[in-house]
């Protein structure tokens, strides 16, 4: 069952004369429960694609549907509540509000929903247990480490039980140990809770946790790799090879 589909997505920045086409007509589909990675060299349009798919940015042309809903047909308010209820976000720089405690940050997306207090508390316990950050609840973001921040951010993304989670370079600012821990967590959540995840990364290690990896080059879909039955190491090797062919930023991490 597909959850997200994009047809002929084009994105142009700038006006007529100095217009720059960042996405040149991308077709893609994501099925429920997939863990999709998007890779590609700098400037290939990874983040732009993610922003367009998750409704933070608008596509110049093309159709994007999530759960059968066309994003273009929605107004600002509808889009906002759609994002709040259906989508989860994890960003490279955590995007936590530093005036809120960890718990307040995590429960923030529920503030306008009708979820009951006990239900919210229950979900909070479940997710923080899963991510191992329960004891951090009363702390402020500046009192915890980067890895903990990113797990908090992940917890915030998951608290609404979203249909799909978008992650933009979630391990970008983490050391390798924290990165691996986070990715294992995401993998577990993807597997256990059947949450669909879409992740932009330039780190082949991170990408090797995915079930499928899309490669972008110059705003176009270059190729895609399926993990299938392979183990992570073999998949990692395959990603490295593809990246080598693609050229570019294999080692800029």
């Amino acid at each position: 069952m597909k959850i997200l589909s994009g047809r002929k997505i084009k994105k142009v920045y700038g006006k007529k004369l100095n217009a720059q086409e960042v996405l040149k007509g991308i077709d893609m589909e994501v099925n429920v429960g997939e863990f999709v990675g998007i890779m590609g060299p700098s400037g290939s349009g990874k983040t732009t694609l993610l922003n367009v798919l998750c409704s933070i940015d608008f596509a110049t042309e093309g159709v994007i549907e999530i759960n059968g809903k066309n994003l273009r047909m929605m107004k600002e308010r509808e889009l906002s509540s759609f994002r709040r209820e259906q989508l989860g976000f994890i960003f490279q720089d955590y995007n936590l509000l530093d005036t809120l405690t960890v718990k307040e940050n995590i429960l923030l997306p529920l503030s306008m929903s009708k979820v009951s207090k006990t239900e919210a508390e229950q979900r909070f316990n479940e997710i923080t247990n899963l991510l191992g950050i329960k004891e951090l609840a009363p702390k402020y973001p500046n009192e915890i480490s980067g890895g903990q921040k990113q797990r908090t951010s992940a917890a915030r993304a998951l608290i609404t039980n979203p249909s799909i989670v978008f992650a933009d370079e979630p391990t970008g600012a983490l050391d390798s140990k924290a990165a691996t821990a986070l990715l294992s967590n995401l993998e577990k959540i993807n597997f256990e809770k059947k949450v669909t995840i879409m992740m932009v990364t330039h780190d082949p290690v991170a990408a090797s946790f995915c079930s499928r990896v899309l490669f972008l080059k110059d705003g176009q879909l270059y190729t895609e790799l399926y993990k299938g039955e392979k183990n992570r190491k073999a998949f990692f090797q395959e990603i490295m090879n593809t990246q080598g062919v693609l050229g570019g930023d294999g080692y800029d991490a």
């Binding site: 307040e104 429960l107 923030l108 503030s111 919210a120 609840a137």
Partner: peptide
Amino acid sequence: KRGRLSIVDVLSLTPIMH
């Protein structure tokens, strides 16, 4: 509020406090 702040609280209460 025990952790469940409304959006109004987030934008008025907490920044003012801090």
